[in-house]
Write a protein that binds this DNA or RNA. Structure first.
Lengths: 239, 239
DNA sequence: TCGCTGATGTATGGATCCAATATCAATGCA
DNA sequence: TGCATTGATATTGGATCCATACATCAGCGA
């Protein structure tokens, strides 16, 4: 079952006007976040156009969209590539997260519904039950972003998403090589955060969250090998 | 003196490949930041194309670029418009600035050159010498952004610029109606900040800066009339 | 008089074609 | 043998044309 979206618009829907670029963007976003396209790698318009069964116009739009999301870097007349970040840049992105995400949480918390809280608890239980790296990344991301889902102010919400996107690759490399020990720490910190959220305690939530991010940043700084031409990791078979 | 750039590519250069979209983006950015296009106003592709003497393709690219900069809002099949922000959204943007800009300053400060410091001092002197609203906005923006010019990490630098862009219109409305009294406060705070920068004191710089932004936010919150269908202000004739 | 429905105009989204630029390999020269 | 130059090729940027969706308003009926 190759889940590839590679078949051109053979028997697909009628392609409702104004959806092609979004479809292409989804395709590329998934590929980049999954690590199928590694940082530093070029992304050729024609290739993507063929892979998605569209012309190059929606591809260009999608590339610009993804540039805004921090997943693509565009250089005039030279094309697009996935940004390659230095340790210092990743560190600074984590510092930005330390300051911004507590704000997003404070903005979001009052708007989280009981259903949201249930889903959060369920997610955390799933994280603790399953120790597969790929799944951990997915669930951890879902957990945190759900935490911010009550924040409806665009610049803040989109900025937080962008910061997560930019460092997704390095998170994967980091988690892959740090083993299950680190997941326990993360889970403990998630539990504290979750508890604060359930108590609707903004102050505690902000404190636990910034501490969570700060400790992750410090831990990451102790693993420079994450940046040593990190493996693409798309078929993350346990070594 | 219509400063319009409306003459099509009559005697303009040969348009070196890959510059049209940038030219269009500059045109629109200036128009929006100057208030020539007010928040909530639509931006039609064909109009811009004619005004800049290009086809609609570079216009689309420019609109997406500006969307990433927070100056344009795109809705599928409905077109582009300048975002209209609520008081709460502006307030939250200022809170983001409170947290992000000190970080940008800390990152930038060690890389500022002696020439930068001279230019900063010169700018501040110009601000104090000239009390015209339009000029104040321009110089104040230049002052702060120059302060961050040593920060070469893209997500941070671009985010700061985006936050400034998003609220430019409301800053104009605010400064227009708050009179020269407020400028004195701003100047005093700028002097403190400038002094900390010259001493290369990161901690003081961060503290003065976040205080500067916080006080501006609080002051702005006391002037809800800024949001009462604020005048376009492009020909800000004293009323 | 008010609300609904359909037709038409207008604006955006997408495809194809052409121009300009970058990339790269082959070749000639020092 | 190493390097610069030069051509061919691949790739991006822009223009024009077509398809589709939204907006407006006239016409009709209750």
């Amino acid at each position: 079952m190759s889940s590839s979206v590679a078949d051109p618009a053979a028997s697909r829907g009628p392609d409702p006007h104004g959806a092609a670029s979004a479809r292409v963007a989804d395709h590329l976003r998934t590929a980049i976040l999954d690590g199928a396209i590694a940082p530093g790698e070029r992304v050729r318009q024609e290739e993507v156009a063929q892979a998605t069964g569209s012309s190059r116009i929606p591809v260009r739009e999608a590339l610009h969209l993804l540039e805004a999301e921090g997943l693509i870097e565009n250089e005039p007349n030279k094309g697009a590539r996935v940004p390659l970040l230095s340790p210092h840049e990743v560190d600074l992105i984590y510092r930005m997260r330390e300051r911004l995400e507590p704000l997003a949480l404070a903005e979001s918390l009052p708007h989280l519904t009981a259903a949201d809280l249930e889903r959060l608890t369920r997610l955390q239980e799933d994280i603790e039950a399953d120790s597969d790296v790929r799944r951990f990344l997915e669930l951890d991301r879902a957990f945190h972003l759900l935490t911010y889902s009550g924040c409806h102010v665009d610049p803040l919400a989109s900025m937080v998403t962008r910061l997560w996107n930019s460092t997704q690759h390095y998170r994967r490399a980091f988690v892959s090589m740090s083993g299950p020990g680190r997941m326990w720490v993360v889970n403990a910190e998630h539990r504290l955060l979750l508890d604060a959220i359930e108590r609707r305690d903004v102050e505690d939530g902000e404190r636990f969250l910034s501490g969570h991010i700060r400790r992750t940043r410090i831990e990451l700084a102790r693993h420079p090998e994450v940046f040593d031409r990190a493996p693409t990791g798309t078929h993350g078979s346990p070594g």
